[in-house]
Computed example of a mutant assay.
Amino acid sequence: MAGMLYLFHGEDILAAREALDLLLREKIPPEVWDLAVSRLEGESLTPAALIEHCQALPFLSPCRAVIVEGLGKRLEQKGEGEAFLARLRDLLPRLPSSTLLIFWERARLAATHPLVGLVRPLGEVREFTPPRGQDLARWIAQEVRRQGAEITPAACDLLAATVGTDTWALRHEVEKLVTYVGPGGRIDERLVDELASEARLSDIFALVDAIGQQRRARAMLELRRLLQAGHHPLYILSMIVRQFRLLLEVKGLPAGERRPEAVARTLGLHPFVAEKVVNQAQRFSREELQRIYSRLVEVDREIKTGRRDGEVALELAVVEVAGRQ
C-alpha cells in the first residue's frame, strides 16, 4: 500500500492551516507530534533529505508526517528544479505506507504546475481560495457567531472592506471586537469604524507609501507606530502582504481597467481602498512588486517557523525593501 500524499495550495492560509491541523489529528496523536511530524523548508531542501525523512519509520505513532513548505517555485526552475522533479517522480509512487507527505504552497498553483501534475494522480490536491464578496461577509458573520457574538450586515461589509480577504487578519479583528462587546454582544458599523481600523489602515497605507518612495526612515517610523499601537508583528505583516498583493493584482489588469471604480468592481474593494491602491501601484514597477512580495512571504515563513523574532524580521525586511533615504 502506498503512503498518503497531499498538496495544499492557495492564499487562504488560515483555512489551509486548519485543514492541515485536522489532517494531522486524524492520523497522529497530538501528544507525539514533536516526534512524528517533520517540517521542511522547500527553499533549502535536498532530494536526499526528503527521501530520508519519508523513509524513516514512525515512532510511537501509526504513521509519520512530513510537511514540505514552499518547494513549488524551485520545481519550475531549469536544471536544479528538473533534477528535483525527477527524484520526486521516483519517490512518490513508492512512498512508504506509514508516511503522510504534505506539500504546502502559500500561493495558488496553476493546473499546469509540475507539483500539481505529480500529486494529482497519486494523492489529493486541495486549493484554498479566500472568500470574496458575499461569501466573505458570510464568513465574517459565521466567525463572529463562533466566537459568541453577533454582527450587523453593514458592520460585516465595513470590516471586509477595511481588512480584505485575509482570513487570518479578519479572525484577529473579530477577536478584538468580540472581546469588546462581550459574550452575546452585538457588533455594529460604528464599533467596527472605531476599533477595526481606519487609523490602522491609514498607517498601513503610509508605510507602503514610504516603501514606494524609497524613504527608509519614514517607513521605519510608520512600522514602529504600528508596533507601538500593540499590533502583533504577524498581523502587521499580513496587512502589508495583503496590500502588496493588491498592488500586484492592479498591475496585472489591462491598462483600461486600472481606474479606481473599475478596480473596486473587479477586486471587490471599497472605493476608498481602490483609489489608494491605484495611486500606490503607480509608484512601483511590476518587477519591484514581485520582489517585495516574495521577500515579505519569506519573512512570514521566518516568523512562523521561529527562525526569527517577529519585530526583528519585520524591521530587517523594511530596511531591505525601503531604500536608503
Rank of each mutant, 00 (worst) to 15 (best):
R94V: 04
R89F: 04
R94D: 11
K78S: 12
A86E: 12
L75K: 09
E76F: 08
K78F: 00
V68E: 13
D90T: 14
A86H: 10
L92T: 00
R64C: 04
G72C: 06
R64S: 07
S97R: 11
L75W: 10
V68L: 10
F84I: 15
G81N: 09
A65F: 01
R89C: 03
L95F: 02
P96S: 12
L91E: 06
K73Q: 15
Q77P: 00
P93C: 05
R87A: 15
K78N: 12
L92Q: 00
A65I: 07
R94G: 05
G72R: 12
P96Y: 01
A86G: 01
P96A: 11
K73Y: 11
G72K: 06
D90S: 14
S98Y: 14
A65G: 01
L85G: 03
P93G: 00
A83G: 07
A83E: 15
G72I: 02
F84D: 10
P93V: 02
A65E: 02
S61A: 15
P96N: 07
I67H: 02
P62G: 05
P93S: 10
V66N: 06
R87H: 10
E76C: 00
G70C: 04
G70W: 13
V66H: 08
L71N: 12
E82L: 13
K73I: 11
L85H: 04
P62T: 07
A83Y: 00
V66I: 14
K73P: 09
E69D: 05
L88Q: 06
C63N: 12
A65K: 09
F84H: 07
P62R: 11
G79H: 01
L71Q: 08
V66L: 12
K73D: 13
K78G: 02
D90W: 12
R74K: 07
S98K: 09
R74H: 02
R74D: 02
I67S: 00
V66E: 12
F84N: 10
S61Y: 11
R94K: 13
R74M: 05
G70V: 01
V68R: 10
L95G: 01
L75D: 07
F84A: 13
A86Q: 15
L95V: 00
S98H: 14
L85K: 12
A83I: 09
G81T: 00
C63S: 08
G79D: 08
P62S: 03
L92S: 02
L91C: 08
G79R: 04
R94I: 01
R64G: 00
I67K: 10
S98C: 05
P62D: 06
L88N: 09
L88R: 09
R94W: 09
D90R: 12
S61G: 06
A83M: 10
R87F: 04
E82Y: 12
G72M: 04
Q77I: 01
K73N: 14
L92I: 04
P62N: 14
R87L: 13
K78Q: 14
R64F: 06
L92M: 09
K73F: 05
G79A: 05
L91H: 02
P62I: 06
R94T: 10
S61K: 15
L71A: 01
S98G: 02
G70Y: 03
I67V: 14
